[in-house]
Design a protein around this nucleic acid. Structure first.
Ligand code: FES
Ligand code: FES
Lengths: 134, 134
DNA sequence: CTATATACGATCATTTTAGTCTTATATAAA
DNA sequence: TTTATATAAGACTAAAATGATCGTATATAG
């Protein structure tokens, strides 16, 4: 039950783009946080495809936030990077294929816990996450 | 951010042992839930080493719960099977080695989220998790 | 035109997860 | 005391996910 490096890198990138009018390049973010450039690029491209960011090509190009960090949640980032927010196989989209599905003893609990987790993920904004007051 | 199969299997095993006075063997649990026997064995041994279960060797042996499921939490199971409950590298025990540690922009948020998650993990009992009322 | 940027797909290395195999030890019951 | 049944433990393998790299194409500011 852990966040992977993508998520960490994405959150750092968000911090770099916060309050920025001008686009910031992947290279600049990569340099600032010591994140492998190509890896970061793909992360930003995924976030772009998910409409969390807007990309501007060419010189002076880079990425800009599409929404403010107040309106971007941790859950959005997980969805952009993972595509799936399920906390276990038992409760995943493909759960229907599980041979145990009909009489599964853990799925009621998993479903409940999934709801609790979703509630957290999609209600903590990246702004909340980044700011270190309190 | 997902629970692995161990956790699922451990929870199923707990369900099988709930309210049981007599020990249940790994083989029996394995058969009932279609869990690979050797894999389940190791899971139960880990839970045993963590004092969640008591093991009885020999014929008519098996495993019995050491505490009631009301007093066993999801967090206990994660600790027994994973050894580590941290939600990300940034906030893990070895976090001190991170080159970004001193000026990390995400660690305040990670620490906060870790607390929230711990609060959930160690306050949901396996009994709560298993029972399907509500 | 050229330098700088994203877009995208393929590839590779490492780590984690999942599952298997083997051997040793304990013990209830015949 | 023998035998069958059980846990204990560690080595091993296979498969999947993660982390990182490479190469090439395309867009565009200057
Ligand atoms: S484990 Fe398959 S549905 Fe729960
Ligand atoms: S990422 Fe290293 S301390 Fe936060």
């Amino acid at each position: 039950m852990r966040f992977t490096k993508d998520i960490e890198y994405a959150l750092m990138a968000c911090a770099a783009m916060d309050d920025q009018i001008k686009p910031i390049s992947a290279k600049e973010i990569s340099r600032r946080f010591q994140i492998p450039y190509e890896l970061l690029s793909k992360i930003l491209q995924n976030m772009s495809a998910h409409n969390d960011l807007k990309s501007i090509q060419g010189p002076k190009g880079g990425y800009v936030l599409n929404k403010t960090l107040e309106h971007l949640t941790i859950g959005d980032i997980v969805l952009a990077l993972r595509g799936d927010k399920s906390i276990a196989d038992c409760v995943s989209i493909k759960g229907g294929q599980c041979p145990r599905f009909d009489k599964c003893v853990i799925s009621p609990g998993m479903i409940k816990l999934q709801k609790i987790w979703d509630d957290i993920l999609f209600n903590i904004s990246v702004k909340d996450f980044i700011k270190n007051e309190n």
